[in-house]
Design a protein around this nucleic acid. Structure first.
Lengths: 304, 304
DNA sequence: GCGGCTCATGAAAGTAAGTTTCATCCGTGG
DNA sequence: CCACGGATGAAACTTACTTTCATGAGCCGC
């Protein structure tokens, strides 16, 4: 009939709240009361039930529904969801995370957590960014074709080395890592052409690791260095150099982030190797997973 | 009577989605189907009605309600709203890198690197987000006051355990970690009041670690669990539970990201402990750094 | 002032959504 | 084999949402 209702409300792409306050004056008094509540605190409105909201606006549920329709929603539930989404979006976490390096002396745990996580995450991202896929490819190639792989690392890097060794081992590659220099040296002396030696050192100056890598190279093995410093001594004994990108902070936090970055590189190499023979790697993983299964307790589910 | 299953499974301040995926394995099969739908597309789930969602998950409405309760919501409407809010918050959809997903078979190294780095970084960030500072504080407190600290972990988590042990040791705390269960068990048997035992297990189902932690608890030590799954068996033998937030993926990439997340938590605890006595920790760090100095080559010059 | 009109409004009826209860089923361990 | 406990969906039930409809206020033109 005559008066076509307020259709053509278009698609309010930007903000629902803005949209609502825009057509607020065109609403009936009772609907305006609802609208004002909604605009004032969208998140709160989203939490309320229709009856609740109606009561708060001193009106009936029917009016709330009419309001929903007036602003272009199908019904109340839809409005609620849109409001929740809207409210969530506008609350941008100001998040005063300490961007720089060190943790301030008076920091509480929450700050410490935020700082560490931020630096860790950034180290991982930046490492990935500067990692040269071509070099990785060559290293993966070498590992895939290797008769034997040895991984060296001291201190914290030693754990990364062990981790890498374990990973390679799990997908059926013959890999070793060593707890001490002497064992490593003797083992490196037995390497030959077609074998691969990987040395991990954050600073790139760990003499033990360099020494072993040098030995390996002398024997004809392909040598790979993983370090944070592209000009450090370890790079001189390496055929391929992979670098992490943990920023220099004080030695502590720097080393912490670096270790995560190292692991990320290790993961990349690992997946690269595994991807070379998907079926075989998967099979190996399944078998090894099965092997430890009896060491897992069953139903992890539990209700009270 | 109040059959209150209100176990208050921690707070989930960070991300509801993250929280849900952590809880996933502790859910019943039918609930898992619902959870997967929700995690896969929160925005879509928020749009659906309960009946609709139940049908999509091939289950009944009752199960959906049970799922809501399992993840700590009052009911379905509340879940819907939270999901809508959550979905709105995540602004950037980095389409190319498969979110929390597997690496596509045909991927080249560059893609692999991007995917891994993305998931690793996110695991770190999300872990930090959902980490409860209050619980950390208590754990730090316990460690600071501990006579002895023991850290247990098997497989990949074993390296994390060793790393933690090494860190604590470097700042002058008496800490141990063990390469095998028997040694660990015998050592745990010697723990007592005032000591701290930390068990690390991604799945939370590693029976060896659980067993040792239980032993430690029996002896009166404070027990801490570090796991990805807040309702896994390990949490039942722990006084304090710290969780990581790596998403479940296939191909073990989940476990890869999880390990980084674990290290992040370890770092947080470490710095927290060190911060308790800054001067002493710094002195210890300097001394230990000095100790390995002779094993470093100087400058960019080759060592002889 | 008075019919007749329009429109906002809420009460109440009606429908759909969400929640609880309960019987059944299935696997597990004795 | 049975007893048990948990998982599950059908159905009963409750609450939330939506529609219908009667009321009454405002507003003309007569």
């Amino acid at each position: 009939m005559a008066k076509s209702p307020k259709i053509s409300v278009s698609h309010e792409p930007g903000g629902l709240i803005v949209h609502i306050s825009g057509l607020l004056p065109s609403l009936s008094p009772a609907e305006q009361r609802v609208a004002r509540l909604v605009v004032a605190d969208p998140a709160d409105a989203a939490r309320r039930t229709i009856t609740d909201l109606a009561t708060a606006a001193e009106t009936s549920e029917a009016t709330v529904i009419r309001f929903c329709r007036s602003v272009g929603m199908d019904g109340y539930p839809q409005l609620r969801i849109r409001l929740a989404a809207e409210a969530a979006r506008r609350i941008e976490p100001p998040d005063a995370r300490v961007v720089g390096g060190d943790i301030p002396p008076g920091a509480d745990l929450a700050q410490i957590i935020a700082t560490i996580a931020f630096n860790d995450a950034r180290a991982v991202e930046e490492t990935a960014q500067q990692l040269d896929p071509a070099v990785c490819e060559q290293v993966v190639e070498a590992i895939v074709g290797a008769g034997r792989i040895e991984v060296y690392g001291a201190g914290a890097s030693g754990f990364v080395a062990s981790d890498f060794q374990q990973k390679l081992h799990r997908i059926g590659r013959i890999a070793f890592s060593f707890p001490d220099v002497h064992t490593a040296l003797t083992s490196a002396a037995l390497l030959g052409k077609g074998d691969v030696a990987v040395g991990i050192s954050h600073t790139g100056t760990t003499s033990d690791v360099i020494e072993v890598l040098e030995q390996a190279r002398t024997r004809g093995a392909v040598t790979v260095a993983l370090t944070n410093f592209p000009r450090s001594p370890i790079t001189e004994v390496a055929d391929f150099v992979l670098t992490t990108a943990a920023r220099e902070t004080t030695y502590r936090s720097g080393a912490m982030a670096s270790r995560l970055a190292q692991l990320t590189v290790v993961d990349c190499l690992f997946v690269g190797v595994a991807a070379r023979n998907r079926a075989r790697a998967r099979r190996a993983l399944e078998v090894t997973a099965e092997a430890v299964r009896t060491h897992r307790v069953g139903g992890s589910r539990r209700r009270s």
